[in-house]
Amino acid sequence: MGMWPERATYGPAFMLSVVTVVASASGLKADTASTCRIDRVDLRGDWGVASFSVELADTEQERALGLMFRESMPRSAGMLFVYDRPTTAAFWMKNTYIPLDIIFTDETGMVTSVHSDAKPLDLTPIPGGDRVFAVLEINAGLARDYGISAGTQLRHEIFSSNQPVWPC
């Protein structure tokens, strides 16, 4: 194993891309006018901009399976869990072998909380709050490395009908 699973095994198509981080201190300009893609999520804050290729989990079955049973995930990858409407959400790491950062957002794409370094196989619930609309899971440590925290903005087409804080 050790490889990212195929579509037929775990859900939507997944495309790899390089994580692009444009730190404010670097002097580089981010392309904030680019269009949204279903397989990518962009994040921005006063720390800069980052993009991750994402696999979308937008059905009950896909959300329940999540990243379970996977032994690795590329650094530039993640999974975006989407609910039909804001809900109370809590995650756990049952059958999840990859340490993760779990990023909870509201329906506008604003990060409301971040749980860093969720431990593999831990059954302790990780609460995200009462108005969770989407959750981004990325490799553990990346939220800290990039500066992702409450107040960070996410851009993805799932937020388009909810007065997004960062429109497509």
Rank of each mutant, 00 (worst) to 15 (best):
P127G: 06
Q163Y: 15
F159C: 01
T112I: 11
S161G: 12
A64E: 14
T124Q: 12
I38A: 13
A8C: 09
R155A: 03
G66H: 03
E6N: 15
I38S: 14
D31S: 05
R44Q: 14
R85H: 12
C168P: 02
T152A: 02
M15R: 13
N139I: 06
D117K: 15
T20S: 13
L121C: 09
R7A: 15
F104K: 04
T59Y: 14
L43E: 00
A150N: 05
E71V: 06
S24T: 12
A77G: 14
E6T: 15
W47M: 10
F159T: 00
A57H: 03
V22D: 05
A50I: 01
R44Y: 05
E60W: 13
A77Q: 03
M79V: 02
F91L: 07
A57N: 08
L56I: 12
V82T: 10
N139A: 10
L121M: 14
A77K: 00
A33P: 01
K94P: 02
P86W: 04
D58M: 04
T32V: 13
M1R: 05
V22H: 07
D145S: 10
G27S: 09
P12E: 10
I138L: 00
F159M: 01
T152S: 11
N162W: 14
T9A: 12
W4Q: 03
P120Y: 06
E107L: 02
G129S: 04
Q163D: 15
D130R: 13
P164N: 03
A50M: 04
A25M: 04
P167V: 08
M1S: 15
A89W: 01
R75V: 06
G45P: 05
Y10L: 10
F159G: 00
P5H: 13
R144N: 07
A134N: 04
P127R: 15
F104I: 06
T32Q: 08
A150W: 06
L136N: 01
G128L: 01
D39L: 04
L154V: 09
A13Q: 09
D145A: 14
V19H: 09
V114C: 08
S160W: 02
L67G: 00
W47Y: 12
L123I: 09
S161Q: 12
S51G: 13
V114Y: 08
V135T: 03
L65A: 11
A33D: 15
G66Y: 01
A140H: 07
P12R: 11
H115A: 10
A140C: 09
